[in-house]
Design a protein around this nucleic acid. Structure first.
Lengths: 141, 141
DNA sequence: ATTGAAAATTACATTTG
DNA sequence: CAAATGTAATTTTCAAT
């Protein structure tokens, strides 16, 4: 969206609107801008949510695991959970074989990994970024 | 990123670069563009992964549940899984109380919902969009 | 609001496979 | 010969004064 279009929606003129956006960027509210792509269209038809349990939950070991998965391109998201599984990983692969290879050669053989439970994503009906606020519903005249 | 900058990275001039991008958009490879924001900075400090089991897995009932969660702003992602849990929902809320309210008044009381297991996300160390391909590493001269 | 600059888009000539 | 690219010119749009 262009700045003028954004200003129109916000009900203000362009210059202060741009200043606000810059302020949000500088303050860290806006992390960046991305294009959304269709994984299936690029041959990445397999999405798996891997529930990972670790042997040690010491902070240093948790951090080490986070750093490790951060280097794996197959892992698109890594969330540390409270509960029976320590980490929830979103893994994207071209096919099931390539996921299985990732699972056996990287994930299960990684240090500190106790058990992995793979849940194949059949389909994703909703994938929204951001927070529940509907921007168009805020400050509407 | 502007088109000229993208063309520079691709090693071609601007017009054919723009044509390629539009071809990707028209073909559905690129779904759209958006800004990435920081949920914590906006007061949404609670992220929960809700594992939902349904009573009926008939296609009509699955679709009905997908449509329903699609109307709930608290649900940012909805993935249908193969395994013991039918759906994995990523839910974002301002605090634990507001999540609990969502859980008790919306999710657990929704039609066809059998059981819900909530896994609180302590922290997210990786959140990447797209696929494992590193674009900058492709076709590099 | 105005102005200056940069980018997007079109048309056309050229090259490449 | 067809498809894609590059150059150039035009129109539009954006951002700073």
């Amino acid at each position: 969206m262009t700045n003028v279009e954004l200003a129109k929606r916000a009900g203000i003129s362009a210059p202060p609107c741009l200043r606000r956006v810059r302020a949000l960027e500088d303050a860290g509210y806006i992390k960046g801008y991305h294009a959304s792509i269709e994984p299936d269209a690029l041959g990445y038809g397999v999405t798996v949510f891997a529930h990972v349990g670790l042997v040690s939950q010491a902070e240093g070991d948790l951090k080490a695991f986070e750093d490790l998965v951060g280097t794996w391109p197959e892992v698109r998201e890594a969330h540390m959970l409270a509960g029976e599984t320590d980490f929830l990983l979103k893994v994207v692969a071209t096919d099931w074989d390539s996921y299985h290879k990732f699972l056996t050669t990287k994930l299960t053989t990684a240090p500190n990994v106790s058990h992995v439970k793979s849940a194949l994503a059949i389909r994703s009906s909703k994938y929204a970024v951001g927070v529940p606020i509907d921007v168009d519903a805020v400050d509407e005249d």
